[in-house]
Computed example of a mutant assay.
Amino acid sequence: MTTPLDIYSFIGFIGTACIIGAYAYLTWVNEPNPFILHGTNLTGAALLTISLLVHTNWPSLVLEGFWAAIALFGLWKALQKRNAAQ
């Protein structure tokens, strides 16, 4: 592998940690907070996208676009549910 470990790689690693952390949170918590879950996934997707814009890997970049869209939809649903409850 010839890609250097630069600041963009470290940003990508933080994004990866966010997505793995969100999945672990979903698995370990009985009733996960959707704002934590989807917000962490969205943050991870955004950070990985920053990394992928510099170290382009098109399939991964497309995946992060879908990941972010799903997280945004989850946040939108959580906001609707919270507003309906109020």
Rank of each mutant, 00 (worst) to 15 (best):
A24D: 06
T49W: 00
F35H: 07
Q80L: 12
L53A: 08
L63G: 09
P59Q: 09
L72S: 11
L42P: 07
N30W: 07
V54W: 11
G74C: 09
K81I: 13
G21R: 08
A78K: 01
F66L: 12
Y23Q: 14
H55L: 05
N41P: 01
G12M: 03
P34H: 01
P59S: 09
T2I: 09
K81F: 09
A22P: 02
Q86N: 15
K81C: 12
W67K: 01
Y25T: 00
Q86K: 15
C18E: 12
N83F: 10
L52R: 00
L37P: 02
N41H: 04
T49D: 00
A71Y: 01
G65K: 10
W28C: 11
F35W: 04
P4M: 11
A69I: 08
F13S: 14
A46R: 02
Y8M: 11
T27K: 10
N30P: 11
T16N: 09
W76C: 14
Y25S: 04
T16D: 08
I36D: 01
A71E: 02
I11S: 11
T3D: 12
I19R: 02
L42M: 13
H38I: 00
H38K: 06
T3G: 07
W76T: 15
Y23I: 12
F66K: 07
G65A: 06
C18N: 11
F73K: 14
L37A: 05
G12D: 04
I14N: 01
C18F: 11
E31H: 14
G39S: 10
